[in-house]
């Protein structure tokens, strides 16, 4: 199931107004349904599997079911959630938890910043509205990567409905999986749990393989993948942010150089 593979590669340059959109779902409603269909299957299953692991993890850490569900519904973004539960489990302070979650989730800022203008492409208002503030809650890696691949080609009025259709499905699947994982904690054999937890990085990795072909993304992806583990050795706390800033700047300079 690789719908993006069937789309022809179209460069997104020049004036967006004299472009015909190659992806048209007929109506915003049709786009929402298309988003939901795209999410049912691999995205919902892989994220669900990852959150089975999270549900089991919060149980071991001493959260009750509702606290685990609270984290998945309100603080949705797995690396930050794991950091939060780890700190709670070792008896860390609230401040330490806030800093750890802040560092783990800082990536959400550039992600929202890049996706939001694509989602509200034909919006005459510059100021974001309540709907945009609410939609931002659903921006996390899977939905973001999918929307960054699919939405630039889509009729502008259909983009936000498509994105929300996609993300509400995977968000719901993570909520349900958190509850199931919480109860499965003692049932699953350890190797299976490991495999479930490892589904997530494998899935994210393959999601981005499709982006390697676009030069302005591919360069940043390759540099980031090399710098990430290296800078993690230098500083487990700040390594990721440094990877983004140093790797991103380097990639930006390389791509800009190539434009001339």
């Amino acid at each position: 199931m690789t719908p993006q593979a069937s789309l022809p590669m179209v460069p997104h340059m020049g004036d967006p107004h004299d472009q015909t959109w190659i992806s048209d779902h007929g109506s915003p409603r049709g786009a929402r349904l298309a988003g939901m269909r795209a999410a049912i299957g691999t995205p919902a299953l892989v994220l669900g599997a990852s959150y089975l692991g999270f549900g089991a993890f919060v149980h071991q850490a001493g959260f009750d079911l509702w606290q685990g569900l609270g984290s998945t519904t309100l603080g949705w973004a797995l690396p930050g959630q794991i950091a939060l539960v780890e700190i709670f489990a070792v008896g860390g302070s609230l401040i330490a938890a806030a800093i750890a979650v802040g560092l783990a989730n800082a990536r959400l800022l550039p992600m929202v910043l890049t996706l939001m203008p694509i989602l509200r492409h034909d919006d005459p208002e510059r100021k974001p509205r309540l709907a945009h503030y609410l939609s931002a809650h659903f921006i996390a890696l899977t939905g973001w990567a999918n929307a960054m691949q699919r939405c630039p080609d889509m009729v502008p009025s259909q983009r936000l409905p498509y994105f929300l259709g996609f993300t509400t499905v995977i968000w719901l699947s993570t909520v349900i999986a958190t509850a199931i994982g919480f109860h499965l904690v003692s049932v699953l054999p350890a190797p299976v749990t490991l495999g479930l937890v490892f589904l997530n990085p494998l899935y994210f990795m393959l999601l981005f393989v499709a982006d390697l072909a676009r030069r302005e993304r591919g360069v940043a992806l390759v540099i980031g993948a090399v710098l990430g583990p290296l800078l993690h050795l230098v500083s487990p706390d700040w390594g990721l942010l440094a990877t983004g800033l140093i790797g991103g700047t380097l990639a930006y300079l390389i791509v800009e150089q190539g434009r001339r």
């Binding site: 550039p110 890049t114 981005f208 982006d211 940043a220 790797g247 991103g248």
Partner: peptide, 15 residues
């Protein structure tokens, strides 16, 4: 910003 976002995410996945 887009380059920073992709580098950050690739770094996260590699880690």
């Amino acid at each position: 910003v887009t380059a920073v976002a992709y580098a950050l995410l690739a770094g996260l996945i590699a880690r």
